[in-house]
C-alpha cells in the first residue's frame, strides 16, 4: 500500500514549490473554466470560447514582446476580443459562426507575427511553446494571488449574472420579455469567458485552454440535468483532470531514461477527453436505470384541461 502510494506520488511532490504553485493556479483556473464552461456549452458558444483562446494567444505573445507577463496579455486582449466579437454580431445565431471565425483568423495572424518577433527580436527561446502549450511549472509564485483574484472576479460575475444568464440561455425572447438586458448579459458573459480562458491559458497553454472550458462542462451537462449539480460536477472533473495531470507530468520525469518529462497540458487534455468520452455511455446507463421517468410527459392533447387547442374555429 505504502509502496503503491509512493509509486504514484513521487517523493518530493508535495515539497516542491513549483508543484504547489501549479496545483493552486491549475485548480483555480479549472474551477473557473468549469463554471463558465457550463454556460458556454448550454448557450452553444463553444466556438466563441475557443476563438477567445486564439485571441489570448495573440495577447500572450504580444505581452511577451513588450516584456510584460503573459497573463496581462492573455486576459487583456481576451477582453478586447470579447468586445470585438460582440460588436460584429457574434451573438446573432445566423452568421455568428463566421464573425467568430474571422476574429479567430485575424488573431492567429497577429499571434504568428508576435511569436515571430518574439523569437527574432528578443533572445527568448521557447516563446511559441510557452504561450501555446503552457508552462505551469515555471510560473512565479507571485502570480498566484493575481490568478486567484481574477478567478474570484469571474466567479462573482457569473454569480451576479446567474439568473438572467440562465433565463437568456434557455430562451432569449423570454429574457427580453422579463426585462433582462439580454445584450448586456451576453457581453458580461463573454468577458467572464475571456477571464476563464486567460487563466487556463496559463495552465495548459492558450490553444489548449478550450479543453478546460468545454470538456468538464460538456461531460457534466450530459450526466445531470440539474444546473446546480452540473456546475459542481464540472468543477470536480476539471479539478481532478488538472491535479492528476500535474501529478502525472511530475512523475513522467522518471518514466524514460532520458529524463524528459511529458507536458502537463497533454495529460490534462487527455484526461478531460476521456472524461467526456466516458460521460456518454455513463449518461445512457443512468437513463436506462432511471427508466422512462425522465422522459417528457406525453402530448398535451390527452391532458384533461379546458383548452383543447386543435380546434379551430371562431
Amino acid at each position: 500500500m505504502g509502496f503503491g502510494l509512493r509509486w504514484l506520488i513521487e517523493p518530493g511532490f508535495w515539497s516542491s514549490s513549483p508543484v504547489r504553485v501549479a496545483l493552486v493556479i491549475g485548480g483555480c483556473s479549472a474551477v473557473v473554466s468549469a463554471v463558465v464552461g457550463v454556460f458556454t456549452v448550454l448557450r452553444g458558444q463553444s466556438f466563441a470560447g475557443h476563438a477567445l483562446t486564439d485571441v489570448s494567444t495573440a495577447g500572450g505573445s504580444g505581452a511577451l514582446l513588450l516584456g510584460a507577463g503573459p497573463i496581462v496579455g492573455f486576459v487583456g486582449l481576451g477582453i478586447v476580443g470579447a468586445g470585438v466579437m460582440d460588436a460584429i454580431g457574434v451573438r446573432r445565431l445566423r452568421g455568428r459562426d463566421l464573425a467568430t471565425g474571422v476574429v479567430l483568423g485575424a488573431s492567429i495572424g497577429l499571434a504568428a507575427l508576435f511569436l515571430y518577433l518574439d523569437s527574432t527580436s528578443r533572445a527568448t527561446t521557447g516563446a511559441t511553446q510557452q504561450i501555446l502549450f503552457g508552462s505551469i511549472f515555471s510560473i512565479q509564485s507571485s502570480t498566484a494571488p493575481v490568478v486567484v483574484g481574477l478567478g474570484l472576479a469571474a466567479l462573482v460575475l457569473v454569480g451576479v449574472l446567474y439568473r438572467p444568464l440562465l433565463l437568456s440561455t434557455v430562451g432569449p425572447e423570454m429574457a427580453v420579455a422579463r426585462g433582462v438586458p439580454e445584450r448586456l448579459v451576453g457581453v458580461f458573459f463573454t468577458v467572464a469567458m475571456a477571464l476563464a480562458v486567460g487563466l487556463s491559458s496559463l495552465t495548459i497553454g492558450a490553444i489548449l485552454s478550450t479543453a478546460l472550458l468545454i470538456g468538464p462542462a460538456a461531460a457534466a451537462v450530459r450526466l445531470t440535468s440539474r444546473i446546480g449539480w452540473s456546475l459542481l460536477l464540472a468543477s470536480g472533473l476539471g479539478l481532478a483532470a488538472c491535479w492528476i495531470g500535474v501529478l502525472l507530468a511530475y512523475d513522467s520525469y522518471d518514466w524514460n531514461a532520458s529524463h524528459r518529462s511529458l507536458p502537463v497540458s497533454f495529460f490534462i487534455v487527455a484526461l478531460i477527453f476521456s472524461f467526456y468520452l466516458a460521460s456518454g455511455p455513463a449518461a445512457r446507463l443512468r437513463a436506462r436505470s432511471d427508466g422512462r421517468r425522465a422522459q417528457p410527459p406525453p402530448t398535451q392533447v390527452s391532458a384533461p384541461g379546458p383548452a383543447l387547442n386543435p380546434s379551430p374555429g371562431g
Binding site: P304, G305, P306, A307, L308, N309, P310, S311, P312, G313, G314
Partner: peptide, 27 residues
C-alpha cells in the same frame, strides 16, 4: 367535445365539467 358549425366555420369545443370551463378556440 362539441362540434359547432357557425356561418360555415367549424368550432371544436372541449366540454369539461360543464359550461363554465367551456373554451372556444378562435382564429
Amino acid at each position: 367535445v362539441d362540434v359547432i358549425s357557425v356561418h360555415g366555420r367549424i368550432l371544436v369545443v372541449a366540454g369539461h365539467e360543464g359550461l363554465d370551463h367551456l373554451t372556444m378556440s378562435h382564429d
